[in-house]
Simulated scan of single mutants.
Amino acid sequence: MTFSICVRETYEDDDGDEQTRFGVAVTTRLPGVGTMCPFVSEHGAVATQSLVNERLGRKGVEYLDDGLGVEDALQSLLNADANAPARQLHGVGRDGEFAFSGDECMDHYDDVVGDGYTVAGNLLTGSEVLEATSDVYEGTRDDDRPLALRLIDALEAGHEEGGDKREDLTVQSAAVKVATTEDREPEPYYDDLRVDATETPLADLRETYEYAKQGYEAALEKYGDAYEDDDMDAAEE
């Protein structure tokens, strides 16, 4: 019922220190996908879908936070799951990637594992959905634009190739989440966004992103000194 992308990227912060960021983005032809499927922390990103089990995503990220490799973390959860054949579970950790699609997932389903990213989907119009998602992400990896926006770009490419095939289900949703090892104050508002019920989920998610970015920049301009000093007395009146 869903397709999604999980990614890992390294970059240099403004001080020249190497940082790692993780992101996950997802869309489906059902409401509220952002409440169930995408999970992220500064140690990794996980998406759980098909017959959704939120515990797989939540515990998967907890295991990554505890230092497990992504394959060990997610495979151990699947090994203990009696309904594993109906699951899709994929993600990235600090040092690897993992994707699983059970043989009871509904066609068309598949997953892609690339260098620093995974893509998976089910109930798709065809394999071109995941191919387009992967291609657009790979083509934007060197962009200076924020990861959240580039993940929306990738999902839009898959959607334009057909996306979720259940056209009779018009109420849809989408979400994007990003976390990083960098200490940022405040956290950008545009790194955790959801559109829970709409007929145009990715267009609405992009618009929400643009408003969130605008609001973040306005807040920094108005309250930047207060954030830096951790003191509201420094805030502009």
Rank of each mutant, 00 (worst) to 15 (best):
C6N: 08
C6E: 06
V7S: 01
R8C: 07
E9L: 11
E9M: 11
E9F: 03
E12M: 09
E12R: 13
D13Q: 05
D14W: 13
D15R: 07
G16W: 13
D17V: 12
D17K: 12
D17W: 13
D17L: 13
R21Y: 02
R21E: 12
R21F: 08
F22I: 02
G23I: 04
V24C: 10
A25G: 07
V26D: 01
V26L: 01
V26K: 00
T27E: 09
R29W: 02
P31L: 02
G32S: 11
G32Q: 00
T35W: 13
C37S: 13
C37L: 12
C37H: 10
P38M: 02
P38R: 03
F39R: 00
F39K: 00
V40Y: 03
V40H: 05
V40E: 01
S41T: 12
E42W: 06
H43T: 06
H43V: 02
A45N: 09
A45Q: 06
V46W: 05
S50P: 08
V52F: 04
V52T: 15
L56R: 01
G57W: 08
R58K: 12
R58H: 14
R58I: 11
K59M: 15
K59N: 11
K59A: 10
K59H: 14
G60P: 15
G60W: 12
V61T: 10
E62D: 14
E62V: 02
Y63A: 09
Y63R: 15
Y63L: 15
L64D: 10
L64M: 11
L64A: 09
D65W: 10
D65L: 05
D66R: 15
L68Q: 14
V70P: 15
V70N: 04
V70K: 04
E71V: 14
E71R: 11
D72N: 11
D72Q: 15
D72S: 12
L74F: 13
L74V: 10
S76G: 15
N79Q: 12
A80Y: 10
A82R: 09
A82C: 00
N83E: 15
A84T: 04
A84G: 01
P85K: 01
P85L: 02
A86Y: 15
R87C: 11
L89Q: 05
H90A: 06
H90G: 06
H90E: 09
H90W: 14
H90Y: 13
H90T: 06
G96A: 07
G96P: 14
G96T: 10
E97W: 04
A99L: 08
F100W: 15
F100M: 04
F100C: 06
S101G: 08
S101F: 11
G102Q: 10
G102K: 08
D103Y: 14
D103G: 00
D103C: 04
C105D: 04
C105M: 00
M106P: 00
M106A: 07
D107Q: 07
D107Y: 11
H108P: 14
Y109C: 14
D110E: 15
D110R: 08
D110C: 02
D111I: 01
D111E: 12
V113R: 14
G114E: 10
G114F: 11
D115F: 05
D115C: 01
G116Q: 05
Y117P: 09
T118F: 09
V119C: 14
G121M: 04
G121A: 02
N122Y: 10
L123N: 00
L123R: 00
L124H: 03
T125C: 10
V129Q: 02
V129T: 12
L130C: 01
